[in-house]
Amino acid sequence: MTISWWTLGIQTVNVVILIWLLGRFFWRPVAAMIEQRRATAQRIVAEAEAKRSEATVALAEIERTRDGLARERETILAEAHEAAERERATRLAEAEKEARALEDAMKATIAKEKQAIDKAWAERASRLAIDIAERLAARLDGPAVRAAFLDWLVKEIRALPTPARQAAAAEGVTLEATSATALVPADQDRYREQIGAALGAHPQIVFKEDRTLIAGLELQGPHFVVSNSWRADLTKILSGLTHDNRA
C-alpha cells in the first residue's frame, strides 16, 4: 500500500475548501436563521408579556378610575342636591320677600285708593250737601232774610277794630255792597244809613247784585272784606268738611 502525497494534499485542500464553503453557505446562514427566529420569538414573547403587563396595569387603572368615578358621581350628586336645596331655599325666600313686598305695595295702593275714594265720596257728599243747602237757602231769600243779613253785617262791622272802621269810612273811600238780589233805592238808602251808623261815618256805598251769593249782603272796601252771605257760609262749611276729610 502506498500513499499518494499529491492526493493527500489535494484532499486536504478540498476538505478545507469544503469546510469554508459550507460554513459560508450552510452552517452560518442556517444557524443565523435559527438564532433570528429564536430572538424574534423571544422578542414577541417579551412584547406579549409587556403588553400583558400594560393591560394589567391599564385594567387596574380602569378599575381605580371606575371607583373614582363612582365616588365622584356620588359626591357630585350630593353637591348638586345640596346646591339645589340651597337654591330652592334662596328662591323661596326671595319669592316670599317679593310676595310680601308686593302684598305691602298692593295694600298701600288699596289703602291709598280707598282713601282717595273716601275723599272723593266725602267731597261729593259735601258738595251734595252744599247743593241741597244752596237750594234750600235760595228759597229763603225774602225781606226777613235780607233784614237778618243786614243786622249780621252791621254787627260784623261793629266788631271790627276801630282803626279798621275809621279806615273803611275814610273820606274818599267808596265801599261796595253786594247782595244776591237787586235792592230797591229805598232799601239802598236804609242799608246805607245803617252801615254808616255802624262805621261811625257815611262813606259812599255802591250797591251791586251777585246771584251767586244765594242770600246775604257783603261789604268790600279797599282794605277789607266783610263776607256775609250764604255763599260765604257754605264755602266755609265746605272748607271745614274738606279739611276734616283730609285730616
Binding site: 469544503l18 464553503l21 459550507l22 453557505f25 446562514p29 442556517v30 436563521m33 427566529r37
Partner: peptide, 16 residues
C-alpha cells in the same frame, strides 16, 4: 453539498 447549501441559504425564512 455547496450547491445544495447555496440553494438552501437563498430560501431561508422565519417561517420554515
Amino acid at each position: 453539498l455547496v450547491i445544495g447549501s447555496i440553494l438552501i441559504s437563498r430560501h431561508l425564512s422565519l417561517v420554515p
